[in-house]
Design a protein around this nucleic acid. Structure first.
Lengths: 340, 340
DNA sequence: TTGAAAGCGCTAACAA
DNA sequence: TTGTTAGCGCTTTCAA
């Protein structure tokens, strides 16, 4: 049997309002006696306030939502941990959805989460239907976009400087003597991390007087095997590169696979830098040089931003668009460390 | 401005009950005319029913909760994906919490989730306070335990056969000529996957007439560096093993680290098998032989079980305790594949 | 075929 | 210091 505030009130011989005041900590005016009495009954009955009823009145649920895709990617599970930790420390619960990069699904999730009256939303947007975010803004619904930029709307975002991430990686390759550097990308479409990494790649080349060679820009599909095939093709072409820059951590594993099948040695014959630091990067053969993104911080910052927004503490909040800094973790795969 | 059922009713010149019937699909008795009229207004106003109010009446939220720890471990993110996919396909939302192996925190999460009137809970239990699960059972609160067994209570569980997982791994090592096989474990306490993996290890040895050597059973703490140290110590002791069985995927990376620092070759000098298949296992040097656990299935099964339980479809549900089968993925690190 | 009204469990304004 | 009451947005019984 569910125990409600009325049960507590009855058993303690007080009114519901008194109980309500006490469970909400507004008992400055109550006798210590009543407070103790009520607290005792709450304990005895193991009374748990119904958050639904409370929220219905207060129009505040203390629940936020997060819409992600590819949970299995370590980058995202790390972001999620950051969000979860922050939510807990601020007294919020978290609802999680997986959009799977499907715009339709993303829309359904947003709708469903709004029906549950969530206080706000953190989204890694699919960008398939930009009207979605526009509607949220129009409804004054608090939300934060993460990782991918929405260029033409003035919304809160937490991103990483992807131009810099790519530039630093490519410049490092150039400094250690590589000249024919290939970049591997999933189809950029309008996805800013992909576009920006390509941009950073080009900037670094141009700045160092190296001509951008279109055939070294490899845009590959996400189906199994496509990356391996592209690597093999490229390594056997006249444009064979002396280094590869991979822009995704899963993709890097496939690239390695492709390289190995060609009996090519990393880093002697080919330098390699991957995007995203992971637990396994340093255990690959050779240990992988990576561009590290502050994923956990991205989660904590997005969550804090959202909570400030919800609680009207815009003053405590950083700029509307936060851009985090990536950094290069140098190991052996890029060839800078000559101890092989 | 929030639009409520009253707004719709007013604008459509019908009563709230009529609107309610229509949004819930109970409009067999309504004129097609009224239905269309109301639907049109709902569209125009972009009306979204308030799930809080609805749930307050119906005492059903269509939200379930999951309490995990170590989200960053691929095993768990894969489980989570299974749960999420299943929830979506059955029309449930998912609240996620991280217990961080902290019994106190676990209790707070359960309490908080119950306050939110969740329909049920999936838990990877810390087992720090068994009364917690007892109370859930006493309250007839639907919940499923995952991965770790609760031995002395009759509850719903989805687990993997860890005795078998370990046995298969060890038997494979024995068959390929290893005799001095070490096992690395985090402190087992009452955690069934750890206890069972140790049990499977012993069973396999005994069955093959190999004496269990206590100094080859390495129980190591979870602090950074402890595993590496233990590996180094063991490899330089008189009891130096000819194979190592790692019982955790993170631990395996540390073991590899320790091995490398000793200039020992895997698998020539030392065979190695790790627990849990991961995206990176096949890319390690040498490619890692692993015991694969059906993690995604564990998630889907746990979620389905819970939903059946919530919806009173116990008949469609498998046994109260489901045990899944692990399988060995043979690569080079164990030494069976002699192509080195 | 539709509507009126009670009530889910809680909070808060107002009254005592 | 405490209680009474209205109402949050919805569903559902009962009546029309």
């Amino acid at each position: 049997m569910k125990v409600t505030i009325s049960d507590v009130a009855k058993k303690a011989s007080v009114s519901k309002s008194t109980v309500s005041r006490i469970i909400n900590g507004n008992h400055e005016q109550n006798t210590q006696e009543t407070v103790n009495k009520v607290l005792k009954v709450i304990e005895e009955l193991d009374y748990k306030p119904n958050a639904l009823a409370r929220s219905l009145k207060s129009t505040k649920t203390n629940v936020i939502g997060i819409i992600l895709s590819k949970l299995q990617n370590q980058f995202w599970s790390s972001v999620l941990e950051g969000v979860e930790d922050t939510c807990r420390s601020y007294g919020y619960n978290l609802m999680i959805c997986n959009s799977n990069e499907d715009g339709q699904l993303e829309e359904e999730h947003i709708r469903s989460l709004q029906m549950h009256q969530l206080d706000g939303l953190i989204i890694n947007p699919t960008l398939k239907n930009k009207l979605l975010y526009k509607k949220l803004t129009d409804n004054k619904f608090p939300f934060i976009l993460m990782n991918r930029k929405l260029y033409d709307q003035d919304v809160h975002m937490v991103t990483v400087d992807n131009i810099k991430g790519a530039r630093v990686a490519i410049e490092h390759l150039i400094q250690t003597g590589r000249r024919k550097i290939a970049i591997f990308l999933y189809p950029p479409a309008e996805i800013s991390p992909r576009l920006e990494r390509l941009e950073g790649y080009k900037q670094a080349l141009i700045k160092n007087g190296i001509k951008v060679n279109q055939s070294l820009i490899q845009i590959v599909g996400e189906e199994a095997g496509e990356v391996e095939e592209a690597v093999k093709r490229l390594l056997n072409s006249p444009d064979r590169p002396d280094a590869i820059f991979s822009t995704n951590n899963m993709m890097t594993l496939s690239i390695l696979e492709g390289i190995k099948s060609q009996q090519i040695m990393v880093p002697q014959d080919l330098g390699l830098i991957g995007y995203d630091e992971t637990v396994w990067a340093k255990h690959l053969n050779p240990p992988l040089t990576t561009v590290n993104q502050p994923s956990y911080e991205m989660g904590t910052i997005a969550a804090k931003k959202l909570i400030y927004l919800i609680e009207g503490k815009e003053d405590q909040m950083a700029e509307k668009v936060v851009s985090l800094e990536p950094n290069l973790i140098i190991r052996k795969s890029c060839g800078a460390d000559k101890s092989y």
